[in-house]
Design a protein around this nucleic acid. Sequence first.
DNA 1: AGGATAGCCTGCGGGC
DNA 2: TGCCCGCAGGCTATCC
Length: 290
Amino acid sequence: MPELPEVETVRRTVAAATRGKTVIGGALTRADMWNGDCAWNDLIPAWVGRPLNEPTRAGKQLAFTAAGNKRSPAVCVHLGMSGRLCMHQPQGTLPNHTHWWLTFDDGTKLAFTDPRRFGGLWGFECLEALQAKRWSALGDDALTIGPAKLHRGLSGTRRALKAALLDQSLVAGLGNIYVDELLFAVRLSPWTPGSDVSRKDCERLVRAMRTLLQKAIAAGGTTLRDYVDADGNAGGFAIKHRAYGRGGLKCTRCRAALCSASLAQRTTVWCGHCQGDPHQALALEKKEVL
DNA sequence: AGGATAGCCTGCGGGC
DNA sequence: TGCCCGCAGGCTATCC
């Protein structure tokens, strides 16, 4: 499931795979996957005959523009749960559930494929419009947010730390996997109320967040099920999960059995011994622990 | 108005 | 073998 490192890996591999190529056409085969205020049919003529710029990323979203045109229309791609952006050879058939693609002058295609359709596409008249109308709702990117900003965001809420970190308007790019891994790494309970997280903890969170995400990017993204980069490669398994998906297994630090419960509608795994806090028991009384 | 919660959607794996 | 059910989850809409 694409989170920040996977999306960043896609961004880099798409950039490399489309470099030097010119857009000659494309197709949108599922109109309901397209949103925003610039229609696909109005956008594509402005792209034909031009190469793509290197895509930009905000959190888990990518933006594409065409080169050689200062006010090129922009397409925002959000992969959602099961979305993929892959290059396909001229003779290859596009996979099922391919909703949109671009064709390049060498016959290759860049295709957006999303079986579950939790992802989507948004067209805007230019990159600035995309940023103003869509990305303005995002918090600072998880790779660049500072401890002060994070602390401000958390201090105003009593909701659980995990729920807050999943909130893209607070910090953009984290998903279920990396939040569980991050909280395990810094030994904070996912149930800690946001406003109980100290400034010092925020400094540790920011440091650990950058380390974790950068390691995952260096490994080509972590992979569980659906994710592949633009070349169709699964992410490296160099990043071993220490919390995510390990409910009931032994903690790699203290050998205690890892706890698993639902928090913010997400399966959440943590070590009740290493990450325990006074709020946990109270919070869990209201929840059913699995 | 913050915060919790349903619903969207398909593929896959476990159980029978 | 094959079917059915439950689960996976990012985000939006809706309700409390």
